[in-house]
């Protein structure tokens, strides 16, 4: 079993990818966060506010 790698590749740096990355890093794994665009954040970074609390998205 020692041949398993302790790292994970995550494709997509949107809210889901970022959350997974943070949880996995906290759980003791090394994460490669692979993002197509030049910055992470995905669509959520474009939202002005979120429903229903109108919290700021960023």
């Amino acid at each position: 079993m020692a041949d398993k790698s302790g790292s994970v590749l995550i494709l997509g740096g949107g809210i889901a990818g970022i959350q997974s990355a943070m949880d996995l890093a906290e759980l003791g794994y090394y994460v490669y966060l692979v993002e197509k665009k030049a910055s992470i954040g995905g669509v959520m970074a474009k939202l002005d506010k979120t429903f229903p609390t109108n919290d700021c998205a960023i």
Partner: peptide, 26 residues
């Protein structure tokens, strides 16, 4: 829902790689 699934999927990876936990972290 996305954030929930994101944490959920972290659990799945963590289940699979439990033996290798901490071997690559800095």
């Amino acid at each position: 829902e996305s954030v929930t699934q994101a944490s959920g999927v972290a659990a799945l990876a963590s289940e699979l790689l439990a033996d290798a936990r901490g071997t690559r972290t800095v």
